[in-house]
Amino acid sequence: MDIPQTRDNTVKPPVADTIHKQESSVKKSPLFSKIDAALMNKVALFQTSYARYAARAMLATLFLTLGTAAAFGTALQAEKILPGSGKFTFAFMFSWSLVMIIFMGAELGTSDMMFVTVGVYRKKINFSTAVKVLGTTLLFNLIGGILFAYLISLTGPFQDLPTNNYLFDGIASKLSKPSLQIFVEAIFANIIVNTALFMNLRMKDDAGKVMAIIFIIFIFAFLGYEHVIANFPAFSLAFFASHGTIAGMTLGSVLHNLFFALIGNYVGGALIIGMTYAWMNKTKTDYVD
């Protein structure tokens, strides 16, 4: 084979050899370095102090309950002033939930779906650890959601609500959705949540992070998509505030919604966002996030 030479007659390596050297190792992704570090912090806390990890998971639904209560509270008042405006105020106020969760270092099950799945794929943790961490997060998100929703239901804004109002009607509508609709809406909901999380990891300015999170989460809240963790306090608050009189609210209808929302959220957050980006960033080129 003829070896290409430069004008000064020095030997120039073949192009194929140059490309091979450039692609000899997988490029390091700054985004996934942060995801790996965050995952390792979660696992270390889980393994050394289960109670502290559980407390962070309960804090996630404390902030989510506060955001949900503020969202429904403002929507109830907005509907009195201008019918139809409640949807806008609800979506805006609900968006602050994820801001509080991220900035206060709480553990949210729908984002942990992405973290642990990517961790298994990237061989940072084993499957057993992933299941335990995610299962614990979901369990204490549920406990926190029920507990804090009950306490919020005892406060002034949720006393003696009329039978037909934005909160009760909204929850009744959620519980009447068919399985496929819940599943598909849940996929999109967690695509949106984990997109907001990725944006938070990539941005440096805190004010910019807040704005990005609010406007991204506004999408799924305004469209009424299904988020299994958000439904923990939402269903609980509606049940306690209505004293169990929500139309169509039975144990079966609640479990039906939560099951398909859980599966859809996993597909959207763990597989479509988490695994897709993990696979795309397992590259030997410079095109990494």
Rank of each mutant, 00 (worst) to 15 (best):
M104H: 10
F94W: 08
Y50Q: 14
T155D: 01
I146H: 07
P157H: 12
I152A: 09
F220M: 03
T6E: 13
D8N: 13
S176Y: 06
M93T: 07
L62D: 03
M1F: 09
T195S: 08
F148Q: 10
K209A: 06
L167D: 05
M203R: 03
G84T: 04
N190V: 07
N190L: 09
T155S: 12
K28R: 14
L167N: 08
L45S: 05
I214V: 15
K27Y: 11
A230S: 06
D205Y: 06
Y166T: 05
A241I: 10
I143D: 04
I102Y: 03
A78S: 13
I152E: 10
F168D: 07
E79K: 13
G67W: 04
F115G: 01
M40W: 05
F260A: 01
N265A: 06
G109P: 04
V99C: 08
A186I: 11
L151V: 15
T89V: 06
S236P: 00
P233L: 04
D289Y: 14
V267A: 03
S33A: 13
R52K: 12
V267E: 04
F235V: 14
L59K: 02
V116C: 05
G105L: 05
I192G: 07
R52A: 14
A70Y: 14
W279S: 13
V210W: 02
L251F: 09
Y277N: 06
F239Q: 03
G208T: 08
A91L: 03
G105R: 10
Y53W: 11
E226I: 13
Q159N: 02
K132Y: 09
F235I: 15
K209H: 10
P14Q: 13
A186H: 11
S25G: 09
F94A: 03
M199A: 12
V26W: 00
S128W: 15
N126G: 12
V120I: 13
S173D: 12
L64R: 04
G73D: 05
I102G: 01
L161R: 12
I214A: 08
Q5N: 10
Y277M: 06
T10E: 11
S176I: 06
V254E: 06
V116I: 14
S95P: 03
A70F: 14
Y121F: 10
I81Y: 09
T61M: 07
G86T: 07
A91N: 00
S95G: 06
Y266S: 00
S176V: 08
F260Q: 01
D286A: 13
H227G: 02
N41P: 04
G244E: 02
T129A: 12
L151W: 07
S97A: 15
S128N: 13
E107Q: 07
G269M: 01
I263P: 05
L142W: 14
F232Y: 15
M93S: 10
G274W: 01
I229W: 01
K80V: 08
F260H: 07
T89S: 11
A75D: 05
Q5M: 15
D160Q: 15
V193L: 07
V210P: 01
D206S: 09
V15Q: 12
K284N: 14
V11T: 11
S85C: 10
G67Y: 04
V184M: 14
T163E: 09
N141E: 01
V228R: 00
N257W: 06
L223C: 15
L197Q: 05
G145I: 00
Y50F: 15
T74V: 15
